[in-house]
Simulated scan of single mutants.
Amino acid sequence: MTTFPADDPDKVPFAGILPAAPKPFVLGNGEGEKSLVFDQLFTVLLSADETEDQYGIFTMQGGKGQRIPAHTHLKTHEIFYVVDGEIDVWMDDQADYHSKTTLVTGDFAYVPANVVHAFQIQGPTKVFGCGTAGFERFFHAIGQKTDLTEPQGVFVPDFSVLRAAGEKYATVFMPEFQFRD
């Protein structure tokens, strides 16, 4: 992934929230670039722009919900660190690693690129995430910009939006994939 140009449509609505350059800054509780995706609130805290294309940092908050469809990121390594709550995470490398794990407060999971995964929040939960630089704005590409500080409501993107974001951010949705539970 590379730094997004200033006119990238996934960045423009958020101009001025993050410095867009590797400069020191502080965000207060609830601040950042926020998008509602389904019933989850994603907040980008640090992007490829600030880290010279090294990584991006985000949080995800939500309540008990449906399982997010199986998908894989072709170029993105991703982590889940549960700040508070409980989330089920499915991972399958389509070779010899297959797992369904319930992560609770303080637990950590690593999903390398090309591993099929999905998750389901089991109650009020906040997850800290880190991924390969640039991927953090995937959530903006499929979500709806918001000023919420807690997840509220539901935003369901059109399938064409999901497909376009998947192409841009090297993500393949696999709704027919069957995990070994």
Rank of each mutant, 00 (worst) to 15 (best):
T105Q: 08
Y55I: 09
D88V: 11
T59R: 03
W90V: 11
A170H: 08
F108R: 00
G56P: 00
Q94F: 05
A20C: 14
M174A: 09
D96K: 04
K126H: 06
A118S: 15
P24V: 02
D8F: 06
G30K: 01
E167D: 15
F177A: 08
K75E: 05
T105P: 00
Q54G: 12
E136A: 10
T43H: 01
D88E: 09
K64E: 15
L46Q: 04
P124Q: 10
D158R: 14
A48M: 03
V161R: 11
V111T: 15
L45G: 00
F38N: 09
V115I: 12
D88I: 14
A113H: 11
T2H: 08
S99Y: 03
F139T: 04
A109K: 02
M1I: 00
L18C: 01
Q94K: 12
H77V: 11
A70V: 06
E52G: 07
T171L: 14
I142G: 05
Q120L: 03
D181R: 14
Q152C: 04
L41F: 06
P69D: 05
E86R: 14
D10W: 05
E176V: 02
F80S: 10
R137L: 10
C130R: 13
E86I: 06
Y97F: 13
F179I: 07
I142V: 15
P157R: 09
F108N: 00
M60A: 12
D39V: 02
G131L: 09
L74T: 10
P22S: 12
D53C: 08
K11C: 05
T105I: 02
P19W: 13
F108L: 15
Q40T: 12
A133V: 03
F159C: 03
S160N: 14
E78Y: 09
G143P: 10
K168P: 08
A170P: 09
F135K: 01
K75S: 04
A133D: 11
A165V: 04
A15H: 03
H117S: 07
